[in-house]
């Protein structure tokens, strides 16, 4: 052995790091090839010209991005704001926001309820929350559809009792989409809320009552401020997938009540305007990234205890 001590240490160190890169290589390559890498292609495509039968022509064009914001009249080439796109983006944001609020209204008491159970019962309640989460989203959407459709169980029941004479049209409305999304994304709100509430020091609540706070005062001035990180985490976790939701609006919204996800699909299907679809996708990713950034900022500010 003629190796000097430093060399030997360094060699072991290098081998350690090299082994680690080799071990993680398959996962990294697969993800980059089939998940992250293609995103760059989307960015590229958003700057190309649309082909006549889908796909693209290989020439630089900002038409895709232009079309996100404006429409050009086919006959006289006049330019106007793309109302349809704005209204769809706006509707998506409104629906996602409303979904978040409803998830919070239902999710907070539920998470609080679970967190105040005896410790050995909690995992069972949590399990009950996670079961629907792991069952197929399409099936859950389908289940909601069965309940609310005109010939579905609610309308049939109401008509039998005689409260209504004709079925209420619930399918293909914004309400249906919102209901569906609330149903589908509720567990995503409950889990981070629970994680925060579980760590709540109930001596602080005792102190609150000791200092003459009412039940509501304790909730509003002590509990909610303390679990704010959990509320933010849950809200982002619901808002992001709701905003980019595709299956729920497709099934429950019908052809007219589009959300961004459906608008994007349209450009790759019937619309045959891939650059526009690509530009819309990039816009969506940017909005999502901002939401995420906001979340990460908040999470790190509050000691990263939000998500757990």
């Amino acid at each position: 052995m003629t190796l000097s001590a430093q060399d030997a240490t360094e060699q072991r160190q290098k081998k350690h790091v090299r082994d680690r890169w080799l071990l993680s290589a398959p996962a990294l390559i697969l993800i980059i090839a089939a998940s992250v890498g293609p995103l760059l292609i989307v960015v590229l495509y958003s700057f190309l010209a649309p082909g006549s039968y889908g796909d693209v022509k290989w020439e630089f064009s900002t038409e895709g991005w232009f079309n996100v914001l404006f429409t050009r009249d086919i006959f006289d080439d006049t330019v106007s704001l793309a109302d349809a796109h704005f209204s769809i983006f706006w509707r998506s944001i409104k629906l996602a926001f409303a979904t978040t609020v409803f998830c919070l209204i239902f999710g907070f008491p539920t998470a609080y309820f679970i967190a105040t159970r005896a410790p050995h019962n909690r995992s069972l309640w949590l399990f009950l929350i996670t079961i629907p989460f792991w069952t197929n989203m399409l099936i859950r959407t389908f289940a909601i559809q069965e309940v609310i459709r005109s010939e579905g169980i609610i309308n049939t029941l109401l008509m039998k009792i005689g409260i209504i004479s004709a079925p209420i049209q619930m399918m293909f409305t914004d309400f249906a989409i919102m209901l569906g999304m609330t149903y589908v994304f509720l567990p995503l709100m409950v889990l981070p809320l629970y994680a925060s509430l579980e760590k709540l020091d109930f001596r602080l609540i005792e102190a609150g009552y000791d200092l003459y706070a009412s039940r509501f005062g304790v909730l509003w001035r002590i509990i909610i401020p303390l679990v704010k990180p959990g509320i933010i985490a849950g809200s982002i976790l619901v808002f992001v997938p709701a905003l980019s939701s595709y299956v729920v609006p497709r099934v429950l919204g019908g052809g007219k009540n589009l959300m961004v996800g459906n608008l994007i699909e349209l450009q790759f299907g019937q619309g045959r305007n891939w650059p526009l679809g690509a530009a819309l996708s990039v816009t969506l990713v940017i909005i999502v990234l901002f939401a995420m950034l906001y979340y990460v900022r908040n999470a790190s500010k509050s000691g990263g205890s939000a998500h757990g």
Partner: peptide
């Protein structure tokens, strides 16, 4: 970050990206 990336990108965008690729 790379390993967790698929969780962050909206599914519809990944789907479109893969369609293109």
């Amino acid at each position: 970050s790379i390993i967790n990336m698929p969780l962050l990108v909206p599914e519809i965008v990944t789907a479109v990206a893969l369609l293109i690729l």
